[in-house]
Design a binder for these strands. Structure first.
Length: 460
RNA sequence: GGCCAGGUGGCAGAGUGGCGAUGCAGCGGACUGCAAAUCCGUGGACGCCGGUUCAAUUCCGGCCCUGGCCUCCA
């Protein structure tokens, strides 16, 4: 039994899909106007774990969109003096590389907003027809007052909302809470012909149209960052429910924010760390583990200590795997092994990844202690790792592969080790220690064993 | 101001009405030329004030604090 915290209702609930043969999940993806930061990566990673978990039990169709038409993209293009499509394409490519580097399996569908404009126009038409929307000065607006359940997801009522609103109220709005479905485009802006003139869609509309197109009117799980609950998801619900006469999603899941210092990581705050720059220094797998070290709903403070501890954790697990591989030459016999029951239970409990990592650590300890057969134990560890999206690298490679950048090559390291071995044989330990220290400063740790000296890389 | 999360040991972070996960760090020991790695052992916690209970970190109430949303935002 999988249980999930449902923002709609504010409680953990048993997961019961509408159709067990076709479970559907939609997660709001990025708007592509610049390099994505590690905060953007959290939902991608978290819902990737959920997708892996769901696939154990169900046939899943997982869609995650990319918003490639947006005023921020227009602005970025104008600033650089390049076509809008160039900006969008560049950052779409970057985004895909970035999350692939974090071990995120490609969603089944990755719809682009610009490829679904006809569907969006259709949605607006039906909302106009049913009286849930109105035209005003080239815009089409959603009439919030026409949807009684508005505010259900975010838990706010209309009065509070108006009281707290600092929104600039466009004069053509019937009600300050009304939001844009379609807006007019000038000639230099991207635009599509529509019954209301040349224009472009409002942000919220995209997700409603794409979710409908790829997954159906009522989907099982809709995910995204907590900061999207209002207004984005609230508006999606309003549009979709009014257009389709059916709920948009059964379960709404929201991940907590990544923090840097005292506030959330956000471009507007100026405290972002891009996935790109992080990956120059740290393997993507370490970043992934760091993202999974807290529960997905909680905020996560991003620090150097977090990265260091994540790296150590992973090193430890890989070391066990490495030793197991050495012990049981005949690997391959334990290939299609199931992850441990405890690990699966932890994840099925609203994606309790910290507990799952605890299970992995315990399994590793048992392997160390020799109470489990190495090949089978290692296979189980890897199977558990797969659910989390870690531990799939060859252990030997894990410790010797170089990060990007000018690091010491393997040949050079081997040569220095040979040199050191001669010094040790000659009893010149001072010189030998110098070499070890020097390599250590360059991120290479030497370990002397009965079989000779081995080396591995570590975080600098 | 309104709404929503959360406050656990040096740090990160699970969990539970009574038996104190897990990782990193620390301490003692084994191993090692010395280290590293590994192994054995070990100390240390539940924001504050009340209440319920035989028993509360865990349930209830109040307070304090932190973060998120109310505007673009993963």
């Amino acid at each position: 039994m999988i249980s999930l915290y449902n923002t709609l209702g504010g409680e953990r609930q048993p997961f019961v899909p509408g159709d067990a043969d076709r479970v559907t999940m939609y997660v709001c993806g990025p708007t592509v106007y610049g390099p994505a930061h590690i905060g953007n990566a959290r939902p991608a990673v978290v819902f990737d774990v959920l997708a892996r978990l769901l696939r154990r039990r169900y046939r899943l169709v997982y869609a995650s969109n990319i918003t490639d038409v947006d005023d921020k993209i227009n602005q970025a293009a104008a600033e650089k003096g390049v076509p809008i499509a160039t900006v969008a394409q560049r950052w779409i490519r970057t985004w895909r590389e970035d999350i692939a580097g974090l071990g995120v399996l490609a969603p089944d569908r990755q719809p682009l907003a610009t490829e679904h404009v006809p569907q969006m126009i259709g949605l607006v038409k039906s909302l106009l027809k049913s009286g849930h929307a109105y035209e005003a000065e080239g815009h089409v607006l959603f009439r919030v007052g026409a949807y009684a359940a508005y505010g259900e997801l975010s838990g706010r009522n209309r009065d509070e909302q108006i009281a707290g609103a600092r929104v600039e109220v466009a004069p053509y709005k019937e009600d300050p809470a009304d939001f844009v479905l379609w807006k007019p485009s000038s000639d230099e802006l991207p635009g599509w012909e529509s019954p209301w003139g040349r224009g472009r869609p409002g942000w919220h509309l995209e997700c409603s149209a794409m979710a409908r197109e790829h997954l159906g009117e009522t989907i099982d799980i809709h995910g995204g960052g907590r900061d999207l609950i209002f207004p984005h998801h609230e508006n999606e619900i309003a549009q979709s429910c009014c257009a389709h006469g059916a709920p948009l999603a059964r379960y709404w899941m929201h991940n907590g924010m990544i923090r840097m210092g005292k506030s959330k990581m956000a471009r507007s705050v100026g405290n972002i760390l891009t996935i790109r720059e992080l990956r120059e220094k740290v393997p993507g797998e370490v970043l992934r583990l760091a993202l999974l070290s807290a529960r997905y709903r909680d905020p996560l403070e991003w620090t150097d200590e977090l990265i260091a501890a994540s790296r150590q954790r992973l090193d430890r697990l890989y070391r066990v795997l490495l030793d197991c591989a050495a012990e049981s030459r005949e690997e391959g016999l334990a290939q299609a092994v199931e992850p441990s029951v405890e690990l699966v239970q932890a994840l099925e409990d609203d994606l309790n990844t910290p507990a799952a990592l605890g299970v992995l650590a315990r399994e590793a300890r048992e392997l160390r202690a020799g109470t489990v057969e190495p090949a089978a134990g290692a296979a189980s560890l890897k199977a558990g790792g797969f659910l989390l999206g870690i531990l799939q690298t060859d252990p030997g490679e894990w410790f010797t592969a170089a990060e990007s950048g000018p690091e010491l090559g393997a040949e050079e390291i081997e040569a220095r080790i040979g040199e050191r071995a001669r010094q040790r044989e000659a009893g010149d330990y001072a010189a030998a220690d110098r070499i070890r220290k020097e390599l250590g400063e360059r991120g290479v740790i030497l370990e002397d064993g009965p079989q000779g000296t081995t080396w591995r890389r570590t975080a600098l």
